[in-house]
Simulated scan of single mutants.
Amino acid sequence: MNTTPLEPPEPADAQPAEPQPAGPQPAEPHAVDADPAPDKRSGASTGTIVWGVLILAFCAVVLQQTLAPGTVDPGMWVTGVVLGLGALLLVVAVAVILRGRR
């Protein structure tokens, strides 16, 4: 069994650390950037939106097949999801183009 201490003991003549005042500490001033770094992006990416829509569509198919099986053709679901994703991607593309013009 290893009984050596992890840290050496403090010498007996060591000065104690300065006591910290009680209460809230004033915030240290820090530099504020006028514009954020160019590699920091805000908002959701297009991939996140597309995968979210795909998962929601899959959940809708499962729910529809559970509650009313056989009432809607699965091929119609696939066609609707593809058309919906295409429209969503067009809307996102137009939004990105219009945002870039500012």
Score class of each variant (00 low, 15 high):
residue 4 T to S: 15
residue 6 L to V: 12
residue 6 L to K: 14
residue 8 P to E: 06
residue 13 D to A: 15
residue 13 D to M: 09
residue 14 A to G: 01
residue 15 Q to W: 13
residue 16 P to I: 04
residue 16 P to N: 05
residue 17 A to L: 11
residue 20 Q to A: 13
residue 20 Q to K: 12
residue 20 Q to W: 10
residue 21 P to R: 09
residue 23 G to F: 02
residue 24 P to R: 07
residue 24 P to S: 04
residue 30 H to N: 05
residue 30 H to F: 10
residue 32 V to N: 04
residue 32 V to A: 08
residue 35 D to V: 11
residue 37 A to N: 10
residue 38 P to R: 14
residue 40 K to V: 10
residue 42 S to C: 02
residue 46 T to F: 06
residue 46 T to P: 00
residue 47 G to Y: 03
residue 50 V to M: 07
residue 52 G to V: 02
residue 54 L to A: 12
residue 55 I to D: 09
residue 56 L to H: 05
residue 58 F to W: 09
residue 60 A to P: 01
residue 60 A to E: 08
residue 63 L to S: 06
residue 64 Q to R: 09
residue 67 L to A: 05
residue 67 L to G: 01
residue 68 A to K: 09
residue 70 G to A: 03
residue 73 D to L: 01
residue 77 W to T: 00
residue 78 V to K: 00
residue 83 L to F: 12
residue 85 L to H: 08
residue 85 L to S: 02
residue 86 G to S: 12
residue 88 L to S: 14
residue 88 L to Y: 09
residue 89 L to Q: 12
residue 90 L to Y: 11
residue 92 V to K: 06
residue 93 A to F: 12
residue 93 A to K: 13
residue 93 A to H: 11
residue 94 V to L: 13
residue 97 I to D: 04
residue 99 R to M: 02
residue 100 G to Q: 09
residue 101 R to F: 03
residue 102 R to C: 00
